[in-house]
Design a protein around this nucleic acid. Structure first.
Length: 254
DNA sequence: AAAGCTGACAACCGCAAGATC
DNA sequence: GGATCTTGCGGTTGTCAGCTT
């Protein structure tokens, strides 16, 4: 039998589920103030809250914890997410470490909203035989997309950069773990690049994800910088030619 | 005006790893 | 050393508001 997820149902153990009330929030907040974070399974015992430890932790981490930023992500945060996802993949908690005040859940939702569904829709359209590139909503206000490299110019230039573990890094950010002190430059940290993410068209091709980006004259510069950097969990980083019809752009794939 | 669609968000689930008994 | 418990993570789904048709 299908169980309604969001309704105020109780589990077999008797835990309440569904949206939290302000009273429940208050009880949980008081508990954390007194006992600190952790010991989530004890929350119900001390507060009378009929919520599982898991549910309490999630509510605290994603909604009640002090210092959380509310509201829309800034363009810089969006850019950071996109770039980190390109290197880290779906490591939402790791990505969240670079965005103070933002939760992994929030970032995950953002990504799925802006890219996941577009991919699904793209696949759907592919089935229907009408593939069209989709311009990201946030980028539509930016200037028109400029062709970077012609199809003919890059047709036979597809190349792959193996990740390199011991490169001396000069720009970008550091991964937090000791064993991954890699340095990957963010777009805006490369001299000459805009502080905002370039115009982007998103589409999918099987299970890979790629973008068409307007790098202007600095495309090769960025590729060279990026290819010097270690990309954890990514086997390759490459440059190829857009395979979509009617598009003559260079793209990056992961 | 109503129905359908879409994006944003909150919250649950399963699983895995680490901690504790 | 094994069983159990706790915690954290990533994936998924339901709801709702706003937009489009």
């Amino acid at each position: 039998m299908m169980v309604t997820m969001m309704g105020s149902l109780s589990t077999e153990k008797g835990w309440k589920k569904g949206p939290w009330t302000s009273e429940e929030d208050k009880l949980l907040t008081e508990y954390v103030c007194l006992h600190g974070e952790g010991r989530w399974s004890s929350v119900s015992k001390y507060t009378g809250l009929n919520r599982s430890g898991k549910s309490c932790r999630l509510r605290w981490v994603n909604y009640l914890r002090p210092g959380l930023k509310k509201g829309q992500l800034t363009p810089l945060e969006e850019e950071t997410i996109i770039e980190l996802h390109a290197t880290l993949g779906n490591k939402w908690s790791t990505i969240a470490k670079y965005l103070p005040g933002r939760t992994d859940n929030e970032i995950k939702n953002y990504w799925r909203t802006h890219f996941g569904k577009k991919r699904e829709r793209s696949k759907h359209e592919k089935k229907l035989g009408r593939r069209k590139p989709k311009v990201l909503k946030q980028k539509q206000q930016q200037p028109h997309i400029v062709s970077i490299t012609s199809r003919e110019e890059t047709k036979n230039q597809t190349k792959t950069f193996e990740t390199q573990n011991n490169m001396q890094q000069e720009m970008g950010f550091l991964y937090p773990t000791i064993e991954h002190q890699y340095h990957v430059p963010l777009m805006h940290e490369i001299e000459g690049f805009s502080s905002t993410w370039p115009n982007t068209i998103v589409d999918d091709d099987d299970d890979s994800w790629f973008s068409l980006w307007d790098f202007g004259e600095r495309f090769e510069d960025y590729v060279n910088q990026f290819s010097k950097c270690v990309m954890p969990n990514q086997a390759t980083f490459g440059v190829g030619v857009d395979s979509m019809q009617n598009h003559d752009k260079t793209f990056l794939f992961y």
